[in-house]
């Protein structure tokens, strides 16, 4: 059974004969007994009828001539090159072109950013640890004890060059400070001479030995030649200090 709401919803299509035969029949039946819907339909019909009676809006008198002149100019224009044709095509498809361009720009930007990103390496503590900071007085003290090369006019102190992972974490020992006397050889290798503190800990000594083996130094230079030098290293947590 059709109600007024349904009838009024179908009224517009009813006026245009756009209803299916069953719908049309139902609307007709409802209208035959509903004055309100008949009035509604009459108003809707009046709206449609009055719109149909609107006078045409006349274009400016010169518009047609201007349009033809514009097309004539278009015809007389010299043959456009591929870039002009491409530009015209882009302009005429502005919306999809801008969408594709936005996507590509975004993709390129993301790609560039992702390309620069590298996974964070899992660096063993021992590799992060060896930050060598050496005070001149300590060097003088050590070198004064061990070598007369300090007296050479062009003497340079050894510097750490490369710290490979030794797989040893000195920080694991929980013992601070660790004082080590090491030999920095002329070829840049480092080796353990003595574990000064804590004394009598063979396990730690072995760890320090391994850690030193992973360090590569630029050797001390005297008179333009690499010379072996002894260094005292203080290992404080993860720092290695001279």
């Amino acid at each position: 059974m059709m109600n007024c709401r349904k009838c009024q919803k179908l009224a517009s299509a009813y006026l245009d004969r756009q209803l299916t035969p069953p719908e049309h029949r139902d609307v007709l039946q409802h209208l035959s007994r509903c004055a309100s819907c008949r009035a509604y339909l009459g108003e809707l019909d009046e709206v449609s009828r009055r719109l149909g009676m609107l006078p045409p809006v006349m274009p400016p008198a010169t518009l047609a001539a201007e349009t033809v002149a514009a097309v004539t100019r278009l015809q007389q224009r010299p043959q456009t090159g591929i870039w002009t044709t491409l530009a015209n095509w882009v302009m005429s498809h502005a919306r999809p072109v801008s969408a594709v361009a936005s996507f590509l720009i975004t993709a390129v930007c993301y790609g560039a950013i992702l390309g620069q990103m590298k996974p964070i390496p899992s660096i063993p503590v021992s590799v992060r640890a060896p930050m060598i900071t050496v005070s001149a007085s300590q060097y003088q003290w050590i070198n004064g004890l061990s070598s007369s090369s300090l007296e050479a006019p062009s003497y340079t102190f050894p510097r750490i060059r490369k710290a490979q992972s030794s797989g040893v974490s000195l920080a694991e020992m929980k013992t601070t400070p660790i004082v080590v006397v090491a030999m920095i050889h002329a070829d840049g290798r480092a080796s353990l001479i003595q574990l000064v503190e804590p004394a009598g800990t063979p396990q730690l000594m072995e760890l320090v030995r391994t850690a030193l083996g992973a360090l590569q130094f630029r050797p001390a230079m005297a008179g333009g030649h690499p010379v072996p030098t002894r260094l005292i290293l203080m290992v404080d947590r993860m720092d290695v200090r001279g």
């Binding site: 809006v57 274009p59 047609a64």
Partner: peptide
């Protein structure tokens, strides 16, 4: 490319196109 035919097209259809757009 018959310009005359295009003029016919404009004369016949432009008023209604203009009215619709207006």
């Amino acid at each position: 490319g018959d310009r005359l035919a295009f003029e016919w097209l404009v004369v016949h259809y432009q008023p209604s196109v203009y009215g619709l757009l207006y």
